[in-house]
């Protein structure tokens, strides 16, 4: 495949960025999107140019490090992570636009790499349980109803990639935060911090400069793990409940 890439290039956080155009040839449809970028970077390095910086780690769809907006869609045209997106989703001769996540709370570090540490601070604000853990407990010691276990698993799938923020017209982190709040909130192990968790995590989310939810639904469409929009509804319910109980 022969492709034209228009890639966001930005030297550092302070510099102005712009789209740069590159041609790549000899791309196999079986390559992942990141392998295609590796091919481009090899050529750039051979030419003595600065390779395109982008985030990646596991390359198997579980770590949440990869993060590209491809032709206006977070993680590109398929509902998966960029590392699991294959070039067969594109046509020979296509022009592809590649941009970083855009949100005030996710400043660009270089090229396509953004700083997502705001997510870490939201987790620090309440995305944990306070019970001492240690080795795995006996599985039947704390019974968990099946529907609750299913709901917890569904929300636990969030890999913290930030596609929801990138897709949201308000740069809101509601889907991510709600996935974390609900994941722990429905389990008996997370019950002691049920109220403080949602209040503290939402407060941190606001403090980081994320926007608010207007129920546009773009986040849930972009989420590679299928976290549902109703996750936000559930967090809203938890929040109002906790605010009523708070003294």
């Amino acid at each position: 495949m022969r492709l034209t890439l228009r890639v966001w290039r930005q030297k550092n956080a302070g510099a102005d960025g712009a789209m740069s155009t590159y041609e790549v040839d000899g791309i196999s449809p079986d390559m992942s999107f990141l392998e295609m970028l590796d091919t481009l970077n090899e050529e750039l390095i051979l030419k003595g140019e600065d390779p395109v910086a982008f985030d990646h780690d596991c390359r198997e769809g579980i770590c949440g490090a990869c993060s590209l907006v491809i032709n206006g869609d977070a993680h590109g045209p398929e509902r998966t992570t960029t590392c699991q997106l294959h070039m067969r989703s594109f046509e020979d001769g296509d022009t592809i636009d590649v941009e970083p996540w855009r949100a005030a709370a996710f400043p660009v570090v270089k090229d396509l790499v953004v700083d997502r540490s705001a997510f870490d601070r939201i987790i620090q604000a309440g995305g944990y349980i306070t019970a001492p853990t240690g080795s795995a407990p006996e599985a039947h010691a704390t019974p968990v109803p099946k529907p609750d276990a299913d709901a917890a698993f569904e929300h636990a799938e969030c890999i913290g990639c930030g596609a929801c923020v990138a897709a949201c017209p308000n740069g809101a982190a509601m889907l991510f935060t709600s996935a974390k709040v609900n994941h722990l909130g429905v389990l008996p192990q997370g019950a002691p911090e049920r109220e403080s968790r949602v209040l503290d995590m939402v407060a941190q989310m606001d403090a980081e400069g994320f926007g608010g939810c207007t129920l546009a639904g773009e986040c849930a469409t972009a989420c590679p793990k299928g976290i549902p929009l109703f996750s936000i509804t559930r967090m809203n319910r938890e929040f109002v409940r906790a605010a009523r109980k708070a003294r």
């Binding site: 228009r6 966001w8 789209m19 907006v69 032709n71 206006g72 869609d73 636009d97 941009e99 855009r102 949100a103 005030a104 709370a105 897709a167 949201c168 017209p169 308000n170 740069g171 809101a172 400069g209 994320f210 926007g211 608010g212 207007t214 546009a216 639904g217 773009e218």
Partner: peptide
């Protein structure tokens, strides 16, 4: 809330598409 939302998303994508 609208002011906050606009501030939270200062840079637009070059590749635009209708949202929502």
């Amino acid at each position: 809330l609208s002011r906050r939302d606009l501030r939270a998303r200062p840079d637009r994508y070059v590749h635009r598409r209708p949202r929502a």
